[in-house]
């Protein structure tokens, strides 16, 4: 009897270990692995998933087995044999979980340390967030973009902050996020390893545009040559005024909140900006005898001066006057007014 029990315990343990290893090696629940950190995190995650599978199967198995095996026979009103405890068993199931979490803790610490190692000559990108858009600035250039372009294989040092409330910069394929907190500058190190286009999410509730903010920007990881070419092209404004206007519209993050067919924008936080100048269009009410150009300019610089019906005051940042140079503002307003 004693030997049989031992045999069963050994067999079940072996089965559980095999199941755990199988899970760790074959179950993938993560999106694409696009950074050095992602590779490290996924290793840790898969190891934990294997351990979790063992514990899950053990507990649920014991539960099911007990329920099926130890039933009160019909007509039996008696109690079971009283067992109040077993010191050895209790020590085992205190120590083994303690050991497991210590190992996981140690492993996690190793992964954390490895993923935060500084490399030589990182690319610095300033991540600025506000309700409800990301802008990425490349210090040393004049480039400000709402999409994040990165060269593959070079460490990026993100400096992350917010102009208003807390946002959280998250690229799932990089396996990391960092809160953008107003008044503070957070640092985040990522080395992209895989070319492709990935979403930038906002992971901290930041207001009515929170969901939109997680759907509007992308990361484009590309070869160093492609990245340098983009940087050069993005620094300059296209000569064609419409193209220049479209570029500025995107650069300053307008698509996060406004819809505009020409720019492929579909934001819903603020009013749609198509057909602004059409006297019979959806914005006819706003003209109120005011020159349309002056009205658009006023709405950019002082959003509270005139509020489109159906929208709340205070949603649009009031600092565009200090952020957009006068010549760019003129191009942007011309572009908006020209939209049919």
């Amino acid at each position: 009897m004693k030997e049989r029990t031992l045999l069963v315990v050994v067999l079940v343990t072996a089965l559980l270990v095999v199941a755990g290893i199988w899970v760790a090696q074959n179950v993938n629940l993560m999106p694409a692995e696009a950074s050095t950190r992602a590779a490290l995190v996924d290793q840790l995650f898969r190891a934990m998933l294997g351990l979790a599978a063992v514990i899950f199967l053990l507990v649920e198995g014991l539960l099911l087995f007990s329920v099926l095996r130890f039933r009160q026979p019909r007509g039996d009103d008696g109690d079971a044999l009283p067992v109040h405890g077993n010191r050895a068993l209790e020590i085992v199931w205190t120590l083994i979980p303690a050991l497991i979490v210590i190992v996981i803790g140690f492993y996690s610490f190793r992964v954390l340390a490895a993923s935060e190692i500084r490399e030589e000559n990182p690319l610095v990108v300033n991540v600025r967030s506000r309700q409800f858009a990301w802008t990425f600035e490349y210090p040393g250039t004049s480039v400000i973009s709402s999409d994040l372009h990165l060269p593959v294989g070079r460490q990026v040092r993100f400096l992350i902050t917010s102009d208003d409330v807390i946002h959280s910069f998250w690229v799932p394929e990089f396996r990391v996020k960092r809160d953008a907190t107003p008044g503070q500058m957070a640092e985040l190190l990522v080395t992209p390893t895989r070319e492709g286009t990935y979403p930038v999410r906002c992971a901290e509730l930041c207001g009515v545009g929170h969901a939109a903010m997680g759907l509007s920007s992308r990361v484009i990881v590309e070869s160093d040559e492609a990245f340098q070419a983009w940087l050069t092209q993005a620094a300059a404004l296209p000569a064609d005024p419409i193209e220049a206007g479209r570029t500025l519209f995107k650069r300053y993050g307008c698509p996060a909140c406004h819809a505009l067919a020409d720019a492929g924008a579909a934001g819903v936080v603020g009013p749609a900006l198509d057909s602004l100048a059409d006297p019979n269009g959806p914005h006819a009410h706003a003209h109120g005898g005011m020159d349309i150009r002056a009205l658009v300019e006023q709405s950019v610089l002082d959003p509270s001066a005139a509020i489109a019906p159906g929208f709340a005051d205070g949603l649009m940042p009031k600092d565009f006057g200090t952020r957009i140079p006068a010549n760019e503002l003129a191009i942007l307003v011309d572009y908006l007014v020209a939209q049919k």
């Binding site: 995190v41 979790a52 979490v101 996981i104 996690s108 992964v111 954390l112 993923s115 996020k177």
Partner: peptide, 17 residues
């Protein structure tokens, strides 16, 4: 069990929020 995943900092940095 998933609480332990969340406690592991490198995993949490991905799945938090």
């Amino acid at each position: 069990i998933t609480g332990v995943f969340l406690a592991a900092i490198p995993v949490d940095l991905h799945v938090h929020d």
